[in-house]
């Protein structure tokens, strides 16, 4: 099967030895000798993949206050360390220059965002909620039945949030404020 050239090499062991000059010893560099995975001394934080609902375990590697690597958790019986492409890309989901990290505000009819502080925004939102709730709250139906609800405010979202967050949303919006339209992706 081998080509003639090779046969000639075999025929001439001397020649083949000659050809090996420079190929036998691997010229390692310093860097190669010292190579080490960057997560060698990193802190491992256990997490769960934020995408689909299979629930793959993640290991988040942290060094100097920065996430340096996110991989599957090999101990998890769900994924045994494996991940799909989205899960494997969780690093880029969290460490991404395109992320919006400032509170943005768009005034009515304005054509631009304004950067605001969280405190300011929270105060404003609370005031909007109070105003709208007070304007739209219905205590009783015409026939006298108590309903204590408002349809003036709605909420959407939860399937990507934590249980604890869902719990507080329902508790505050529903039990506290009387908002009825509290919905999430489960409906979609």
């Amino acid at each position: 099967m081998h080509e003639p050239a090779n046969r000639s090499v075999r025929a001439l062991p001397m020649l083949s030895n000659l050809m090996e000059i420079g190929s036998r010893v691997q010229p390692f560099s310093k860097e190669s000798r010292e190579k080490a995975p960057r997560i060698r001394d990193a802190k491992v934080v256990h997490s769960v993949c934020p995408y689909c609902a299979v629930g793959c375990g993640l290991n988040v590697y942290v060094k100097n206050g920065k996430v340096i690597d996110i991989e599957g958790n090999p101990d998890s019986f769900i994924n045994h360390g494996t991940l799909c492409p989205k899960g494997s890309a969780t690093f880029q989901y969290t460490v991404n220059a395109s992320r919006t990290t400032q509170v943005l505000y768009r005034a009515p009819y304005s054509d631009h965002w304004e950067v605001k502080s969280s405190e300011w925004a929270l105060d404003q939102i609370a005031q909007r909620v109070k105003k709208t709730r007070d304007e739209t709250f219905v205590e009783r139906l015409d026939d006298g039945r108590v309903i204590n609800q408002t349809q003036g405010i709605a909420s959407l979202g939860g399937a990507t949030l934590d249980i604890e967050e869902n719990y507080l949303i329902k508790k505050l919006f529903n039990a506290g404020l009387g908002i009825v339209s509290i919905e999430n992706q489960a409906r979609i």
Binding site: V54, R128, I163, E165
Partner: peptide
């Protein structure tokens, strides 16, 4: 519409529970 954009933490930046499939 008045819009408040509140930048959110990623799943690795907060603690909490997911309930999977």
């Amino acid at each position: 519409t008045e819009v408040f954009f509140m930048p959110a933490a990623a799943s690795t930046e907060k603690e909490g529970t997911f309930t999977n499939t």
